[in-house]
Design a protein around this nucleic acid. Structure first.
Ligand SMILES: [Mn+2]
Ligand SMILES: [Mn+2]
Ligand SMILES: [Zn+2]
Ligand SMILES: [Zn+2]
Lengths: 152, 152
DNA sequence: TCCAAAAACGCAACTAATTTGCGTTTTAAT
DNA sequence: ATTAAAACGCAAATTAGTTGCGTTTTTGGA
């Protein structure tokens, strides 16, 4: 279950509680950043965040917050066509300080490059081959997103 | 002429034929680069190539060769943990000037970051969802490669 | 073989993305 | 209130990739 679903279910979720439970300080920016992720279906580029907060926040602070959020299991990297850093919220139950488990797929739009998690398509489990040890499989779907599909 | 020279020459001609058939000029560097890809099971970073050729070649030339090779359907981008450009040979029959078709998976080692194509694991075909149009699916496997698995 | 056009190349400068160092401010815990 | 840890801002550095342009090599035809 993702944070935004939790947020939907209980009327008011304290972002502060989540930050605290992950061992992160409750600064104004980090609370707002967590809220931004919770309210965004799409994954976020560093630049999306910088644009959102305007000149209120330094880019270095953004990079460091993302790094901390990722380390604490709050967000995870999402594949990006142009090799830039891009993140989405983790599943509340699945990820923590030292274990990220992502059992869902990612969609990338060929046209607008929008990316988001698709929770209900589970990547196939691949059994180990030869001498390898496969720990995780992930599935990337590419094509036209809803918006681009309807206008092309 | 010794056999091994004949052999070398035939091998070289083979690469030249491929370059010509793709509409690429047969320069010493591009022949050697194609050979490097053909002899490498692992996918190659720009930096792997620059290290291999040492100061014999300019990095701009490497970037442009990779771009041309990709456009002509000779190589394809491979996902990289650190978001760098990384390539592997395409299947000669499948890819060409304006169509890349990659019906295989990619393995990424969690420890050494080595990446390579796994031809015999075919990504599942995902039917379209909702308003989306899914054109392609790709599967990424992560874990320990043969080498890292045996020493950890 | 000779020639012109196209492709490839090298160099320098440039842009974009991300990281590091360090001193200051804010937050957390007592 | 005190103090340590975490977060922050600014400047500078680093890394990765790109662009412009003049020169060289390759190609394909005369
Ligand atoms: Mn995801
Ligand atoms: Mn591949
Ligand atoms: Zn789109
Ligand atoms: Zn490995």
């Amino acid at each position: 279950m993702r944070f935004w679903m939790l947020n939907n279910m209980r009327e008011k979720i304290q972002y502060e509680v989540i930050l605290t439970s992950k061992g992160l300080s409750k600064t104004k920016f980090r609370i707002d950043l967590l809220r931004l992720f919770c309210n965004s279906k799409k994954s976020l580029l560093v630049d999306d965040i910088i644009v959102f907060f305007g000149n209120m926040i330094n880019k270095v602070t953004v990079y460091r917050a993302l790094e901390d959020f990722e380390n604490k299991g709050l967000i995870h990297k999402v594949p990006d066509k142009k090799n830039r850093k891009r993140f989405s919220l983790c599943d509340f139950d699945e990820c923590s300080q030292n274990s990220h488990i992502h059992n869902h797929s990612h969609f990338i739009c060929d046209i607008c490059n929008t990316t988001f998690c698709i929770d209900d398509i589970i990547p196939p489990t691949i059994s180990n081959i030869k001498g390898y040890h496969i720990k995780q499989s992930s599935l990337i779907l590419e094509g036209y997103c809803e918006e681009c599909n309807s206008t092309n």
